[in-house]
Design a protein around this nucleic acid. Structure first.
Lengths: 279, 279
DNA sequence: AGCATAAGCTAACGGCGTTCGCATAACAGA
DNA sequence: TCTGTTATGCGAACGCCGTTAGCTTATGCT
């Protein structure tokens, strides 16, 4: 399981900047958002760029590498879930102290950002060649979803971050290939690709702690729908049995199909129907 | 701003169950998942049902109601963000202690679950009558998204929970009205409605801490795309400028349009094209 | 009037992310 | 080979978090 997660390039350990100790009488930085313009927030384009331009110094000592930290975090995430992904647990798994982790990672957010990109790596795989573009897109989307469902911890961390890491970019490149090849403009292809990704991630994300196929849960849902007020929720009461049994797989397949159908019509009819395309 | 959040029915305070102190020699519960079958997890259908069937006892004393707690939590969430939504801060805002909150709420998860449903209330509003069903759906989806964008804290809490509260159900009822009225079967309408909701929530969720229209961020993205390896990421490099400027609004509009187009084709062509509909 | 109890408070627990200061091992240049 | 520099580990602590136990007090019912 461990070898599933590919490692990327190694980075030097973090330097321990003296935090610019404000000497007595000196004003503290007035606008932290401005003065901290160095060290951008993890996940932003600026952060990825800065990270790459850092010189790869040689590492020393007993080699607790960033990759080792991420490996430990990854297995922890897979085996014990997102809630167990604490600095303490990672350090314990590695046999070091929490403080040591901060030599390789600025903070937990940065660790998670790196982890997400690494975890997304094995999700992208090329579909069979004899499919048309829409079938290929559907194939990839399903694979991506299955990967996330297999690793719920990863899915629960996917949030609020642009997907700009090397592994994520590979997915973007592939989607663009598909959609531009199918006839969409680069701009529309980009928007379509990210809306598809949004849908896949969202559909996994919103059903995380849930087993919608659990018969007990279905029973409770049916009971809930049935017992609503008929006047205000007529359809819920009327179709309680049907609604209670709709699974997240159904939701995904219907949404996926609809999105791809929509993309196809966008190709044949052109983007004329998009509201207020200019902005 | 406070009055935007409608309150629902008041509930009795939580009783302080003595935790069934295991008398000496008695075995502790072997399988907690089984023995805790009472008190289901917040957000599940069973939990909403149990909550309703609780008798509404009269409240006493200086009236720190559940509604007051949720009001305080809501304003806190709106003004200081999700990270500031701590039991301590809520208690401080109310002028009480943290422990008092637990008289009205089992734990933080329950509070958040109630908060989410309450926060979703004002998001649903009926569109103008002279639109066709697809335009109405688009109108509602945009309103929902705008509401979430105005209240990012709410959006960041929307996760992993079924949307079964009274306010959420109102949205479901309305979507079903629209889609069944348009000609979809109840089952397909339900799947379509939740995939649409998933897309709206997901698209807000994944762009939470981000301002994709920030020129500085766009510049960095362009730089990032441009500096990729041309051999592995040809399209990213080639269309760097275009890609960097695609906004989350673009993504949303394209996805929304595609979904609705897909639904429409599902109505005219029937569900024959859905893969493996039977399960 | 008296009682049961709902509903507040004080104080504490363990766990979390993070930082400070120090120790030490590895390399660089002499 | 020695020496100074620096990367990289560690111990201990800080402040915040959610949660609980045990108490006190005010309330409404009989």
């Amino acid at each position: 399981m461990l070898s599933e997660w590919c490692s990327h390039n190694a980075y030097p350990c973090r330097v321990h900047e003296p935090k610019t100790t404000t000497t007595a009488g000196e004003l503290p930085p007035t606008d932290p958002a401005k003065t901290r313009q160095t060290e951008p927030r993890p996940g932003t384009a600026a952060w990825w760029l800065a990270r790459e331009s850092e010189p790869a110094r040689q590492r020393r000592r007993r080699a607790l590498t960033l990759d080792a930290v991420l490996d430990a975090a990854m297995t922890l995430l897979d085996t014990r879930g997102a809630a167990a992904l604490t600095m303490r647990n990672i350090a314990d798994a590695l046999g070091c102290t929490q403080a040591s982790l901060y030599r390789h990672v600025r903070n937990r957010e940065e660790l998670v950002t790196l982890l997400i990109d690494r975890a997304i790596g094995p999700a992208s795989s090329t579909p069979p060649d004899d499919l048309d573009w829409a079938e290929k897109a559907a194939w990839s989307a399903r694979r991506f979803r299955e990967h996330l469902l297999r690793h719920p911890g990863v899915a629960s961390l996917l949030r609020g971050t642009e997907r700009l890491g090397p592994n994520s970019l590979a997915g973007v490149q592939y989607s663009l290939e598909l959609l531009i090849g199918a006839g969409l403009s680069p701009r529309l292809a980009s928007a379509a690709a990210s809306s598809l990704a949004t849908f896949v991630i969202g559909s996994v994300h919103l059903n995380l702690g849930l087993d919608m196929s659990d018969p007990e849960e279905i029973r409770h849902r049916r009971l809930l729908y049935r017992s609503r007020d008929t006047a205000t929720f007529p359809l819920l009461v009327q179709h309680a049995d049907t609604l209670a049994e709709v699974s997240s797989d159904d939701e995904f397949e219907v949404g996926l199909h609809a999105l791809l159908t929509g993309f196809r019509s966008l190709i044949t009819n052109g983007p004329a129907e998009l509201p207020t395309d200019g902005r």
